[in-house]
Write a protein that binds this DNA or RNA. Structure first.
Length: 310
DNA sequence: GCGCAGGGGGTCG
DNA sequence: CGACCCCCTGCG
């Protein structure tokens, strides 16, 4: 592993502050990197701000940083412009302190289905994404499709985030609760949120005012308490709550988001009810815990990715 | 090519 | 259990 640092600049933010943010240009390389496939990580449905480039690399925005990732054989190369130390950021965000080889082994021993789905999505890692960003992103995901979700988030970032220049192109950070709270319902509607405008507006107000304190929520150990708190946010129902629990820095692998794809695959593999719509969520949940235990969320991700792509 | 219908990572009332 | 915004996609 090696790491280099240079210093560059990005432009001032949109709040009219004249001083320029100091921004590091960094590179970080991991050799012999197991369990890391760009496509598996970025296309398995957990994130919305990574885009494939023509050369096969991916560029994404993480906190106040733009990161480019490419893979060459067993080597992963990260380049960034932004505020944070790249090595620390990457370690946390890509969950490098977790041993996925071990998790895959454990799950593979459960049954043939898991074995197959893992060999399909062998490079998946569950990202530790910013809690606030994950909440808003998955509220937007309700009854929506991925290209449109991505478009909405990009427009929100462009309107309320900070600009960062990376390789002569502009990127925009995800808005903070404070900056997004300046958007009216009509502003949000004009960004294309549709009926989700009120939900995002009200959730933003609740978080910005600390009526719901995300920092405190991160400290809370009790799973059901955290989940129930999330469920008080407008636009957050059971499925969205479970996505937030699983894909954010809350990092709760016991969360098991059930959408139409998961229902389909769970029914097909384990329940075998002729009419899959008759299967109750509670039953799917129960079977998931019996089979996968505290790794249910990760198992879900392999199954979801496998069935959806195939 | 262009226009149009169908539907989508659910939530809420 | 139906409505919900609006883009994206696919087909004619």
């Amino acid at each position: 592993m090696k790491s280099t640092k240079k210093y560059g600049m990005i432009n001032a933010d949109k709040e009219g502050m004249k001083e320029k943010m100091k921004c590091k240009e960094q590179t970080y390389i991991i050799e012999n990197c197991n369990t890391f496939e760009l496509r598996d990580i970025f296309e398995c449905g957990q994130c919305f701000r990574w885009n494939k480039q023509e050369d096969g690399s991916y560029i994404g925005i993480v906190r106040n940083n733009v990161i480019k990732v490419k893979k060459q054989e067993n080597k992963v190369i990260f380049q960034s412009v932004g505020e944070d130390n790249l090595q620390e950021l990457v370690t946390e965000y890509f969950d490098f302190n977790t041993n996925y080889e071990k998790i895959k082994e454990t799950l593979s021993n459960i049954d043939e289905n898991m074995k197959k789905s893992i060999s399909y999505g062998k490079g998946i890692r569950i990202l530790n994404q910013d809690l606030w960003e994950t909440i808003i992103s998955f509220i937007i995901s309700a009854n929506n499709n991925i290209p449109r979700i991505k478009g909405i988030i990009e427009r929100m970032a462009k309107a309320y985030g900070k600009e960062i220049i990376f390789e002569n192109k502009s990127y925009y950070t995800f808005p903070t609760p404070y900056t997004l709270a300046q958007a009216s319902v009509a502003d949000l509607r004009s960004l294309g949120l549709g009926f989700r405008d009120v939900r995002v507006y009200e959730t933003t107000k609740m978080i910005q005012s600390k009526q719901i304190d995300l920092e405190k929520l991160k400290q809370e150990k009790d799973f059901e308490k955290v989940r129930n708190t999330l469920l008080t946010l407008p636009g957050v129902g059971p499925k969205v709550a479970d996505c937030i629990l699983l894909f954010s820095s809350l990092k709760r692998w016991e969360a098991f988001p059930i959408d139409v794809w998961v229902r389909r695959v769970m029914n097909e593999l384990y329940i075998k009810e002729p009419n899959e719509n008759k299967v109750k969520k509670e039953e799917i949940q129960k079977i998931a815990y019996e089979k996968f235990g505290s790794l249910a969320g990760i198992a879900q991700q392999y199954l979801f990715y496998w069935k959806r792509e195939a």
